[in-house]
Design a binder for these strands. Structure first.
Lengths: 206, 206
DNA sequence: AAGCGTATAGTCCACGTGGACTAATCGAAC
DNA sequence: GTTCGATTAGTCCACGTGGACTATACGCTT
């Protein structure tokens, strides 16, 4: 019931993801998330971020590491990610990645999919791909029935758009799954700069 | 500040839209919305629907028309749409239709676009089309900068999907706008069954 | 006729959201 | 040198959400 993973919000996952890159205080998270345009994925306001940080701490997913002070500025509480926090993000991604309802959650999960093993990511995305195909089918059925019943087309514009976007997403998935599966597609921990340099040279030769 | 249109939620709009088809009690709205799969667009639970109906009434957008009782079942309060309610839906659609942030609101607005004049709908959708193109451009820039800086592709999967969906939506818009503008595309109040019959014969001849 | 599941109709409440607000400090212009 | 705006850092609260819960009635089985 009080499973901490189930209670994670998209913003909570984003905060945990930030802290996996290093300790930080809430205000710095807000600036960094805005700089990275994370507000594409979650709405970032002071209210929610501070509140979310408080919840994550009470859940034991992050912990205070000290109150520091810069000049005469207000003191800032810095947080760090706990082992439970790191595990919770991965578990949350595993839960949300295959789902086709909850598009907002899926986008955040996809943005954090790099934390999973390549094989696991592919498998979960494949489940989602099939679920997408199924919901496309049922939406097509719904459109067909509506047209048969003589529902005027002006009432079906939103369904038409939904069909177009579903088909586009299927096309994208069928393109991206083989791409990820390709061993040439980088996966795993971020390469060091020198590894990145070698990878670039390799890519340039081809 | 306390503009009733600004305070409308997607579910509120959906409720108002239902009431434009006839008076109804909340429980019937819930059943009808589930039957029509309106839960694709808004989450429908008892809690939110009853609460939303209460808010709409306090805002003067709907009004009680009587408490009726069916057999020995609990009594039901039936609501009707006020003129202010009908106007509020249209105003809300005008506000949300051109926006590219808030995808959930846009879907509901698109589902109710049939209430607007054809020309107005086209104009608002055109504004959105251009805004979509602009945000596609800036996302492409963001992707370009990330690739230049050597960010590994595994971290850019979500952006890749977003680009694919944005492009698909632009394609859809560029197809649907001329379609709507075509005088052969039905618009305005729902045709009567006989008009619908004539339209079907006309369509069949072509 | 007793039991049981489902449909009907609605209430209640814990919680997350996000906008408004506070307050101090720094830099720049006048 | 003081006024003004922007930045830093965080608090507060009204409100909407959605899941849990209540209670009666209907229909079906045993």
């Amino acid at each position: 019931m009080t499973d901490p993973v189930a209670r994670l919000t998209p913003l909570g996952v984003a905060v945990l993801a930030l802290l996996s890159e290093g300790d930080m205080h809430p205000y710095e998270m807000i600036r960094l998330m805005h700089f990275r345009r994370d507000d594409r994925l979650v709405t970032i306001t002071n209210g929610t971020v501070y509140h979310t940080v408080g919840r994550l701490e009470r859940a034991g997913l992050i912990a205070e590491v000290g109150v520091d002070r810069d000049g005469n500025r207000p003191e800032r509480t810095t947080y760090t990610q706990t082992d439970a926090g790191a595990a919770a993000v991965l578990e949350w991604v595993r839960r949300e990645l295959p789902r086709v309802d909850r598009p907002a959650e899926f986008r955040v999960a996809l943005a954090e999919v790099h934390g999973l093993d390549r094989d696991e990511a592919i498998e979960l995305l494949h489940v989602r791909r099939d679920a997408l195909a199924a919901s496309l089918g049922s939406l097509e059925d719904g459109q067909g029935h509506a047209l048969e019943k003589g529902v005027p087309a002006q009432y079906l514009i939103e369904i038409d758009r939904e069909l177009a976007l579903l088909r586009a997403e299927l096309v994208w998935m069928d393109a991206v799954l083989p791409r990820i599966a390709d061993p040439d597609f980088a996966w795993g921990p971020t390469p060091t700069p020198s590894e990145r340099y070698l990878a670039q040279r390799k890519a340039a030769r081809q």
